[in-house]
């Protein structure tokens, strides 16, 4: 083997560069610094709120449903969250899991363009809101929403219902829906009552435009999916599918 000076320097260079490339990530991780995730969810620099629900963790306890009703003080018979039991019959058993449903705060919502009086609209931070003082109760938005997560308040139109968390009271004869706890976010508290209440930590809420946020990270890691993608609404609630089948 020719150990000339030129060859020695070449070999040393190759080994040195390879070592540096190979060991750098390890060094970074050992130092506790997280690698930024690819910004697959990012659409801009301003905050855009979204949620991840891990169906593998959800036990169907309805703590989120109760927390939502308490937080929003919703009218009688109305809850913004519906925890559905999804059952898939197999040959010898029933595969089941729970799927909480609420307004998906879609990026391209079907409910917004159909409202005849602009009572439902999308805020800059991605939250789809319902103006209860403007709604005429035509229910066209309920028809357009493919997720069927809007609710009609059947109370009389001239009645004064329960107090709304953002002030005033719930009028009868209007459409209601999940607001991502808009009143909390407006007050600077960036979390929702359902996320706080979940005992299984199945829910993550935060800024989808921030690749370092918990919600972005968990959507990336758990390969979060959106419901009914064929409806082209691009929901901002992502679901993590159950890893294993649950036999019932």
């Amino acid at each position: 083997m020719d150990f000339s000076r030129r060859n020695f320097i070449r070999l040393a260079g190759v080994v040195g560069v390879s070592g540096a490339v190979g060991l750098t990530p390890l060094a970074v991780l050992q130092a506790g610094v997280q690698v930024p995730l690819p910004a697959i969810l990012k659409t801009g620099d301003a905050p855009r709120y979204g949620m991840f629900i891990d169906l593998d963790k959800c036990v169907g306890c309805n703590a989120c449903t109760v927390a939502c009703i308490r937080e929003n003080n919703t009218p009688r018979g109305i809850g913004y969250i519906d925890v559905m039991a999804m059952e898939k019959p197999r040959a010898a058993y029933l595969d089941t899991h729970f799927q909480p449903m609420q307004c998906m705060h879609c990026e391209d919502p079907a409910c917004v363009p159909v409202c005849p009086v602009q009572a439902t609209y999308k805020r800059a931070d991605g939250i789809v809101v319902q103006d209860l003082k403007r709604c005429i109760g035509c229910k066209y938005c309920m028809q357009a929403c493919p997720y069927q997560v809007r609710h009609f308040n059947k109370q009389p139109p001239f009645s004064h219902g329960r107090a709304h968390p953002a002030g005033g009271s719930y009028p009868g004869g209007v459409v209601l829906k999940c607001t991502f706890c808009q009143h909390r976010i407006d007050a600077g508290n960036i979390t929702t009552a359902c996320t706080e209440a979940c005992p299984a930590d199945a829910r993550y809420f935060g800024d989808l435009n921030d690749p370092r946020s918990d919600v972005s990270r968990v959507i990336f890691e758990r390969k979060g999916i959106q419901l009914l993608p064929e409806k082209l609404t691009r929901p901002q609630i992502f679901y993590g599918l159950p890893k294993t089948e649950r036999r019932v």
């Binding site: 363009p113 005849p116 005429i136 066209y140």
Partner: peptide, 18 residues
């Protein structure tokens, strides 16, 4: 309509996409 007294909202807040 749930709130027929708000029919004037058709004039006040028109939504041309609806």
């Amino acid at each position: 309509l749930g709130q027929f007294t708000r029919m004037h909202h058709f004039i006040l807040y028109p939504s041309l996409s609806s």
